[in-house]
Computed example of a mutant assay.
Amino acid sequence: MLLVSGTFVLAGFCASSCAEDDTPAEPRADELIFGQFYGECSGERCIEIYKFDARKQELAEDVKDLYPTAGTPYEGEYTLLASSFYRHAEDLVQYIPAQLLREANGPIGQPDAGDWGGYYLEVNKNGKRGFWLIDTQKRNLPAYLHPLVDTLQARIDKLP
C-alpha cells in the first residue's frame, strides 16, 4: 500500500510468476456509491446515498433520495459535502471483500423485506460498475459480508 496525501491507494500488481496464486488482490475502487434505504419510513433519513471519489478525495450526498432498484445501478444527483466528512468514508474500500466483486449485481439476502432496510453499495473500478442491495440482517448474509455491513452502518451514522 502506498500513502499518498493521507489517502491509501490500494494496488495489486502481479507478474506472470504469480499466475498460480489464487489469493485475490485487494479491490481498488475509483469510486464508491454507498448508503442505506428504508421503504416503510418517513423523514429525510429514509434514503441516504453517498458518492465517494478517491481520485478527487471528495464525498458527496445524493439529493434525489430515490429508492434503489435491483435491476440497475443507482443514478443520483450529488452535492459536495464539507471536506471534513471525507475522512469518515476514506477507509471503506478496505472493507470491501474481493468475494463481493464476484457476486452478481442485485440483492444479497432480503434487503428491506421486513421493513428493516437495506444497504446500497456500488463499486466503480476501471470503468466497470458492480452494485448490490445488501440486507441489514446478518442472519440473511454470508459471514464474509458481516464486517462490511458493520462498517457501512458505522460510517453512515457519522454522515449528514
Rank of each mutant, 00 (worst) to 15 (best):
R139W: 12
Y86S: 00
Q36K: 12
L100W: 09
Q94E: 13
F13W: 11
L59R: 00
G12D: 13
Y67F: 14
T79A: 15
D30A: 13
A25S: 14
E103L: 07
A60M: 03
G109C: 03
L133T: 03
T7C: 09
L92A: 11
A98R: 12
Y67H: 15
P107S: 08
V93D: 11
Y67V: 07
N105A: 09
A54V: 01
F37R: 09
G6N: 09
F52H: 08
K125W: 02
E90P: 14
D22P: 10
T23S: 11
Y86E: 01
W116M: 11
L92Y: 07
Y67R: 09
K51W: 02
K51A: 06
D22S: 10
P111C: 07
L152T: 05
L141G: 04
I108Q: 07
E61Y: 07
K128R: 09
D150V: 02
E103S: 06
E58Y: 05
F52E: 07
E58D: 03
A60T: 02
D30S: 14
P27R: 04
G76K: 00
H146Q: 08
R102L: 14
L141M: 06
D115F: 07
Y74I: 02
D135G: 10
A70R: 05
F37S: 01
E48A: 10
E44D: 11
S42M: 05
K51S: 08
P142R: 06
R87E: 12
C41R: 08
F52S: 04
Y78G: 06
D53K: 00
W132Y: 15
A11K: 12
D135V: 10
A89N: 15
R87C: 03
E58W: 07
P68V: 03
G118T: 01
T7N: 14
E122K: 13
G118C: 10
Y86T: 00
G127P: 11
A70Y: 02
S17V: 12
A19Q: 14
V9F: 12
D62V: 00
T69Q: 15
C46G: 05
L92C: 14
T151R: 15
L145M: 14
I33C: 08
C14Y: 02
G114Y: 09
E122W: 02
E40H: 08
G76P: 00
I49K: 02
G39R: 04
F52P: 03
T7W: 02
A113G: 13
P147F: 14
S84H: 07
E44M: 08
Y95A: 05
